[in-house]
Write a protein that binds this DNA or RNA. Structure first.
Lengths: 252, 252
DNA sequence: CCTGATCGGTGCTGTAACGCACAGACCCGC
DNA sequence: GCGGGTCTGTGCGTTACAGCACCGATCAGG
């Protein structure tokens, strides 16, 4: 079994569980790669699998006929895909697609359903995470309506960075445009501004985050609100700036 | 007890419950008036009460500093305020405010928590309704981003009409502007178009729906999607056009 | 090495909103 | 009947996008 992955490569929701529940859960999981662009579920369709990302990240998208699906929620190893199963409903509310390739523990919905009946903390954690998604959804909706592109873009870069945890990831303007529901050339202009100010650097899709702090000041309040929510609801910091600090002081 | 209200004035979620659960629930409820503009809960704060609207309707709003809160979800007697309690979390995810005055059954969160442990169908129904809200949230987010004001406005009038069930309600342009996240004068222009086409008529806040069918054609797909969702998830038609038909054929 | 595809920069025009301001119509209370 | 508040209509300049088009730079494959 690949349970004994490197310490940092794990899933933070699973980490919250007591040892016995972790063990039960991981017995039912298998490690899989997530390919860039892979579609993990479709709205209204049953989940084929549920995923606990280890690295890489996944987007939840809301499709609207005649438009490219709009991103509602970004999910890395601080979250999971399929928390709505805790409501006893087997169909997915939204589309999920892999935005940053990586790996995940995956589990069959039936298996998780069974576990949910026995494991108190697992159920509790999934409930909390679902509540968190609820908050994020409403935050993103308001953000997309009121805030302007450069701010939203900065937020997006920061969120992606938090979830990849390596200051470098692959993301073309074209793709970002889809997520944010704007034109590709709009992204180019906004990203160009950030690059000119040396907050980021990019080339043919590879993005480097150069200055977190300045990027954060450029971004809208929604980024910080997301971090706060995570801490308040789950009781631990998300993979955000706070976590990065504690990590960087711990690295040898 | 005021449980024996007129047959049509009830809550459709409660109606879904078996008789014994209904009885248990209503024993813990009291009937209250909902005043226009009354704030029923605040995001991040515990719910003082939970509400099953009987008539009138309530909005869920997402606040963003520097802006008027944006509406995420509209709730009449087809829904309830506080379904997120089924996740075991006592704080409200969003603000709720009374948009159309009316009445409701209200219950203390602790009382509902207790009932949830015993009543299987109550829990199931609240879970389904929460899932539905999840869908509506993402739909509204995408709608607010891509669709244009006249379409969104038509949708809003239809949704309000469904929830008041009387083709006439009080809603000023100013208020609508807040809900939709646009200027008041923008609403005036859009509503003026609808009035010129004889789809609605309004005067100093009193709105009459004149032509449902035409209004529906004018509205975006999101209106129909909401009705479909309700039927698919809860298994009964919402208080939408379909229901109105069956009602109108039943009235003496 | 050529070819085709992808990525990103740039520049137009068009438009749905914005912010702001003002004025008429109507209602209510003193 | 007067005055103040609310509701609605309207106009103006501004702005952040959309939509479209075209370009060069870079990369991958035969």
């Amino acid at each position: 079994m690949s349970v004994t992955a490197p310490a940092k490569i794990t899933n933070r929701l699973v980490q919250l569980l007591p040892a016995d529940e972790q063990h039960q859960l991981l017995l039912q999981c298998e490690v899989v790669d997530m390919q860039f662009g892979q579609i993990l579920c479709e709205p209204g369709q049953p989940y084929p699998y549920l995923y606990f990302p280890l690295h890489g990240f996944v987007s939840l998208l809301a499709p609207l006929s005649g438009h490219i699906p709009l991103e509602m929620c970004l999910m890395g190893n601080e979250g999971m895909l399929g928390a709505s199963l805790v409501l006893g409903i087997e169909t997915a509310p939204m589309q999920a697609i892999v935005q940053g390739k990586g790996s995940a523990w995956r589990i069959r919905p039936e298996a998780l359903q069974t576990l949910l009946e026995e494991c108190v903390q697992l159920r509790r954690t999934l409930q909390q995470y679902l509540f968190l998604q609820f908050r994020q959804l409403s935050q993103s909706a308001a953000c997309g309506h009121f805030h302007e592109l450069p701010q939203r873009l900065a937020r997006w870069y920061l969120m992606s960075d938090d979830r990849t945890q390596c200051d470098e990831f692959y993301l073309t303007h074209q793709f970002l445009a889809g997520m944010l529901g704007v034109r590709r050339s709009g992204v180019t202009v906004a990203a160009g501004k950030l690059q000119k100010q040396h907050l980021i650097r990019y080339n043919r899709g590879m993005v480097h985050i150069l200055d977190h702090e300045a990027l954060r000041q450029m971004s809208c309040e929604c980024y910080g609100a997301g971090l706060d929510d995570y801490r308040n609801i789950l009781g631990i910091p998300s993979t955000g700036a706070l976590l990065r600090q504690s990590f960087s002081t711990n690295t040898p």
